[in-house]
């Protein structure tokens, strides 16, 4: 399998590997995939008082494209609001990394991880406005 230079770069020098304490109030954690499918992605966001994602970390069990997708996503997330983050689509990730068709699902997984992390954060921090948003995005 030939990988693009961007995939290789993220794979060889993954950005923002690590974990936050999932119990912290300002942290949202998303874990998606399943070991039996060959891919598990754990994505965490740290959200500041102004509602911006100030930091993101990941750990991924999966192929090179899955590792690269999650590494890329941690970079894309920083500085975004939750609503802006929800606009990141798997197509953006796949295009940026030039993923071949058989690897598109790796980028889908990364998009799912973003959604899972945000919904975890929102369910922990149910202010009125956020609660409304969370319901809307779940619908």
């Amino acid at each position: 399998m030939a990988y693009s230079d961007k995939v290789l770069d993220h794979y060889e020098n993954p950005r923002n590997v690590g974990a936050f304490d999932a119990e912290d109030q300002d942290v949202g954690t998303g874990m998606v995939g399943a070991p039996a499918c060959g891919d598990v992605m754990k994505l965490q966001i740290k959200v500041n008082d102004a509602g911006f994602i100030e930091d993101a970390k990941f750990k991924t069990y999966g192929c090179g494209s899955a590792i690269a997708s999650s590494s890329l996503v941690t970079e894309m997330l920083k500085g975004k609001t939750l609503d802006q983050a929800l606009d990141i689509k798997n197509t953006h990730i796949a295009e940026e990394l030039a993923l071949p068709p058989v690897k598109i699902h790796c980028s889908v997984l990364a998009e799912d991880a973003i959604r899972a992390a945000i919904s975890d954060y929102r369910s922990k921090n149910m202010t009125e406005a956020d609660g409304y948003n969370a319901c809307k995005s779940a619908a």
Binding site: G33, A34, P35, N90, H105, A116
Partner: peptide
Amino acid sequence: DIASVSWVHGTESHREPEAVVA
């Protein structure tokens, strides 16, 4: 125990991906 975790799979991440323009 990893076997005891209920994994979210077969759902979201395995839905049809949106087409990507190569």
